[in-house]
Design a protein around this nucleic acid. Structure first.
Length: 817
RNA sequence: GCCCGGGUGAUGGAACGGCAGACAUGACGGACUCAAAAUCCGUUGCCCGCAAGGGCGUGUGGGUUCGAAUCCCACCCCGGGCACCA
């Protein structure tokens, strides 16, 4: 390799070793610098890293290094989301323990992440599949259990009758078991839940103050889905033995338009309602059919409305006017939301209308609609009609009056409902955190005492394609003694959803080595909340919602500081890397491996490409040529900074030199702005422009003035240091000595950055007709005079007097003629 | 269906009401070279013109403004999220 050529292999290795050994990015509580917590979502260790990781960690690293230069101690940790299904499936396929596979993959990934040059405090590394970590996941489960926030209940699950196991929704796509192809059924099984619904209001209200992308906030709000309404009783005609049907509505003002009532097929009153009636057979058949259908089938039957409901033959009595209306079952009413029963108002609800048309049920409209309205249903504001004592009121008044009417009679009350359900955490799987519970014939459900944790996953298990968790047949794991009575007991064999592990890993980073507690609340208070969280938009709902719930619950339990209610103050969601228009993925076979580029172009070139290709929020298409371009630029910078370009002379400062100094002040100003705005692509463009200018400067007949060029190049290196850390460190050391990443962020002088002369644009009727160089501090009058003196302007005016002259100092004059 | 994004050269993108296309990629031409690579220089939105210059141009149509890629209204197309939530 020729002397003077940028040998990125050697340079990158050298500096990676230096940062490791010197511990440049290790930070502690007693460091007096202000704290900044910079976090990238920890990866699932799938083996080699992909371009999405590169983009994510490059952004995180740029923040880390930039904030460090700005005087912060930046906590930037890394770890592994190492429990989960893919490793267990690989274990079944290859006959290797998932722990072995996972640990190997972590090593590969860690090596590659290191080659990216990202600065992590590796002392804080966590891996949630290790007992040192999951012990504390179990501990937190127990604390939630003690607080009544973890409970066991029956829940409908996807069940494969052939594999004899529960399937996650994504394993039951299309209503078919992904392993054996059998039709998946709904089954009711005892499952563990976290009571996230207790926090629904807080989770919703606290979204407002977060510095998060608006679309993520919208998704969180929709997911929680708070709706205010009324719950009330509708008696069943002639069936005093059955008690009323309780319904929920957000439109109690439309109650006089109720022309039928609908129960969910799973509603508890159904069996009694039809027993011994002529409708019994038809209703039972309907209920059985719906029960066997998966959620997916239920949704896909859209369009065949006539098969999706059935008349029970029974009648309900509208408490407001005594009208008798039929009671139907329909699968569009969900058992799990509200009361599982609705009053149907086909005049003011689209689904009710569609159903009513199909089953020839009457439509009563209760809101006067605008004259121009032609749609069959109207749900807007207006005056009530056909509504008894509500007539003449507007919608809001009617809601209030109808609610008061119900409350007076003890027949109903205002009620808030949520779309959010409790978090089902049970997984019938091996490779997850065991739920620390035992079942004793004498004592029932007994939590494992904290001092007995961790409940370890046994290593001596066989991974067979039976579909059943190996924990269920592992005698040594299954059989234990009751912590309460010492009698024989069996362990819970379900493990926790991996989202539980990721709901607190950012707290463990604050105190990763703690052997007596999950973390010290004081240390957590020192670093938290995360100042900048960076990750993919795919976690916009689940992970971010669960982690927020954990933070609030742990603060309430005294495990974390009480005022720490939100874990992530600022969130940045990066766009995807695509290849030829589609997402890069193994299954599509369009993966581009970052590792190849470490070898062929170097980490700095790969990082620079990712930053230059476009705004980091946007999806981007991968381009090999783009990396070539980034690499070309770095080589250009290398030649400039190693003195291979042009001639350098010693002389007194000339105008040309001063223009270069002005340029470097402007450059620093541009970078300072762009780092704050995350517009790295335009910052890099400015660096390229300035580099091109320095080339012309050094190659000009007069040559470059030594101090001026050195100062300009040094500043170019400083501003690029967070983006291309290896090359800038190497050049800085050669030119200046010392470590560039310990230099302070360069100051700039806005006055120095301002140009002395600017090019003023002269428009006639909004079209550019001339350009005139003027002093930067030119007055409005001078600009107007210069513009009107322009031959081109006079030509365009053709002797007419201008009607008006708009002057925008010092950029533009618009002559309106 | 509802809710977000987004439509700018051959391509990625730039332009936070004021020069549309910065910077880069690609392509073409040239220099250097025995040759190639690397590097360097030049051209590169469309149309008319020898040129000076002129006209057109940011998905479509309208509007606001001295001035619109940018703001407003309507529509078309693409991407994403949610979807019987009463």
């Amino acid at each position: 390799m020729a002397e003077g050529f940028y040998d990125f292999h050697a340079v990158e290795e050298k500096w990676q070793a230096y940062w490791d050994e010197k511990g440049t990015y290790r930070v502690d509580e007693d460091d007096p610098r202000p704290a900044f917590y910079d976090l990238c979502m920890y990866p699932y260790p799938s083996g080699p890293i992909h371009m999405g990781h590169v983009r994510n960690y490059t952004l995180g690293d740029v923040i880390c290094r930039y904030r460090t230069m700005n005087g912060f101690k930046v906590l930037s940790p890394m770890g592994w989301d190492s429990f989960g299904l893919p490793a267990e499936n690989a274990a079944i396929k290859e006959g290797i323990h998932p722990g072995v596979i996972t640990r190997q993959r972590i090593e590969v990934m860690k090596q590659q992440i290191r080659r990216l040059g990202a600065a992590y405090d590796w002392r804080r590394e966590v891996s949630c599949c290790e007992p040192e970590y999951y012990r504390w996941t179990q501990y937190l489960f127990l604390r939630l259990y003690d607080a009544g926030l973890a409970y066991k209940a029956m829940a409908p699950v996807n069940w494969c009758p052939s594999c004899q196991t529960v399937l996650a929704n994504e394993q039951a796509e299309g209503g078919v078991c992904e392993r054996c192809g059998s039709a998946v059924e709904k089954r009711d099984l005892e499952q563990w839940f976290f009571k996230i619904t207790d926090y629904a209001d807080q989770l919703l209200d606290d979204v407002e103050a977060l510095d998060w992308p608006e679309r993520v906030k919208v998704m969180q709000r929709n997911w929680i889905g708070r709706s205010h309404g009324v719950e009330f009783d509708i008696p069943i005609a002639g069936r005093d033995d059955l008690g009323p049907i309780r319904v929920f509505t957000t439109r109690i003002d439309t109650v006089f338009g109720m022309t039928y009532v609908v129960l969910a097929p799973e509603h508890p009153l159904v069996a009694e309602l039809v027993r011994g009636t002529g409708q019994e057979r038809e209703v039972t058949e309907f209920v059985d059919r719906v029960r066997l259908e998966s959620e997916i089938d239920r949704l896909s039957t859209e369009g065949e409305l006539d098969k999706r409901g059935v008349d029970t033959g029974a009648k309900a009595v509208n408490p407001f006017n005594g009208a008798e209306v039929p009671i139907y079952l329909a699968d569009y009413v969900l058992a799990g939301y509200g009361t599982g029963a609705i009053m149907a108002v086909p005049g003011e609800d689209q689904r009710d209308y569609d159903f009513a048309v199909c089953y020839e049920l009457p439509v009563i409209r209760t809101t006067r609609r605008p004259d121009s309205w032609t749609e069959p249903i109207y749900a807007g504001p207006g005056t009530k009609v056909n509504s008894g004592f509500l007539d003449g009121m507007d919608v809001d008044e009617a809601k209030e009056a109808a609610t008061a009417w119900l409350v007076e009679r003890g027949a109903g009350e205002a009620k808030v409902n949520y779309r959010l359900r409790d978090w089902l955490i049970s997984r019938q799987r091996y490779w997850g955190c065991p739920i620390p519970i035992v079942y004793c014939d004498q004592c029932g459900t007994v939590p494992v005492p904290a001092e007995d944790l961790p409940v370890r996953l046994p290593d001596d298990v066989e991974f067979l394609p039976t579909g059943e968790s190996p924990l269920r047949s592992h005698e040594g794991f299954l059989n234990t003694t009751c912590p309460s009575c010492d009698g024989p007991a069996t362990r819970e064999t379900d493990t926790m959803d991996t989202f539980v592990d990721s709901s607190w890993y950012f707290l463990r980073y604050c105190d990763a080595g703690n052997e007596t507690a999950p973390f010290d609340p004081e240390k957590v208070g020192h670093w938290m909340p995360v100042d900048q969280y960076i990750g993919g938009i795919e976690h916009a709902i689940l992970h971010l919602m669960y982690a927020r719930f954990f933070m609030k619950a742990l603060a309430d339990l005294g495990l974390a500081p009480n005022d720490l209610r939100e874990p992530f103050a600022r969130l940045f969601t990066q766009g995807m890397i695509r290849m030829g228009g589609t997402k890069m993925s193994k299954s599509k076979g369009n993966l581009v491996s970052p590792a190849e580029f470490f070898d062929s172009h170097g980490a700095d070139a790969l990082r620079l490409f990712h930053l230059f290709v476009g705004p980091p929020t946007e999806d981007v298409d991968w381009s090999d040529q783009g990396v070539d371009g980034a690499s070309r630029y770095l080589n250009r910078l290398w030649r400039l900074a190693t003195g291979e370009v042009g001639t350098v002379v010693d002389r007194d400062e000339t105008d040309a030199d001063r223009e270069i100094t002005r340029g470097r002040h402007a450059l620093v100003g541009k970078f300072t702005d762009d780092y704050e705005r995350w517009t790295y692509n335009t910052a890099i463009a400015a660096a390229m422009e300035f580099t091109n200018e320095l080339y012309r400067y050094a190659q000009s007949a007069d040559g470059a003035r030594r101090e001026t060029l050195d100062d300009a190049v040094d500043h170019l290196l400083l501003v690029l240091a967070p983006m291309a850390p290896h090359m800038t460190a190497e050049l800085w050391e050669r030119r200046r000595g010392g470590h560039i990443h310990e230099e302070p962020w360069p100051a700039f002088d806005a006055d120095m950055a301002a140009a002395e002369t600017v090019t003023m644009v002269v428009q006639v009727n909004g079209k550019v007709r001339d350009r005139i160089d003027v002093a930067a501090d030119v007055s409005e009058d001078e600009m107007r005079a210069a513009a009107l003196a322009s031959d081109r302007v006079q030509e365009q005016l053709g002797g007419r007097k201008p009607k008006k002259v708009i002057v925008v100092p010092p950029k533009l004059v618009n002559v309106v003629g």
